[in-house]
Amino acid sequence: MSVYLLRRLLQSVLVMLAMSVIVFVGVFAIGDPVEILISPDADQMERERAIKALGLDLPLWMQYLSFLGNALRGDLGRSFVFNEPALQLILQRMPATLELALGATIMALIIGLPLGLYAGLKPKSPLSSTIMAGSILGFSLPTFWVGLMLIMVFAVQLGWLPSTGRGPTVEVLGMRWSFLTWDGLRHLAMPALNLALFKISLVIRLTRAGVRETMLMDYVKFARAKGLSPARVTYVHVFKNILIPVVTVVGLELGSTIAFSVVTESVFAWPGMGKLIIDSINVLDRPVIVAYLMMIVLMFITINLLVDLAYSALDPRVRLENK
């Protein structure tokens, strides 16, 4: 098990290195931040001083090496715009995004699992057809449009839920969280649902397919032949097997949910990393863009690792092979 972990960590480091090169070169290719950052009236002297101060006069590989050297010391550069460390900017906004993404994931499981289970157990009932049709909508409606509709209905028409911001936050572990207060939860509800929509559909479809497939397995029939109650067969024998693919896929999706929370954060003015990155791209704030992308890569790698561990905890067959 520890050998396995070590190998995975080594792989992760290599992936991070490769990604850092790609990200750095990619961002360099986007455009010249000087044009945006320095006022058009500035004279040649001022321009050159600014370029030197930003380190933009060095060749690309030297810029990369100094970036890498700094990155290893936890310094991902200073934002051109905020004149603050880029990493700090991102870490400040990360709890908001994490909270949103995790809220959406939990919502997807709480709503998606029972609906998918029902649709799988009673495939011919009209309710199942409705659920499946709904899941197609969830896949195909654009997130920003659904977000706007949610605001129209729940904020504007009914006035039940606030439409922007995080609401009051509470500091825990040095980070600020909304979900710990009732008003914060009310602020979280709509954006989380908006972000969850796609995942709810995904969980419904995965669960239904899993139930349909597992119900045909010999071990389910054998469980029935033992005289177990239908509830025990469904919730222990079938459900535990379905959980494996669902947890794997939903876990792996967490990375993309964080990455794609950009749209939802923009619609609901949710002050997370997604909103920061959009603003930073608009002004070509390179250090922030690079730092953001590196954080996302790191997050994907961590999530994959955690999913693998969860997977082996759920599936005894995998557990043995790793020992």
């Binding site: 397995m217 222990v236 535990k240 005894p316």
Partner: peptide, 17 residues
């Protein structure tokens, strides 16, 4: 009344002890 199935590799649930 009990039943024993044909394929022993398939009759026990793989995720339960």
């Amino acid at each position: 009344i009990a039943m024993i199935f044909q394929d022993p590799m398939m009759t026990l649930n793989p995720v339960l002890r």
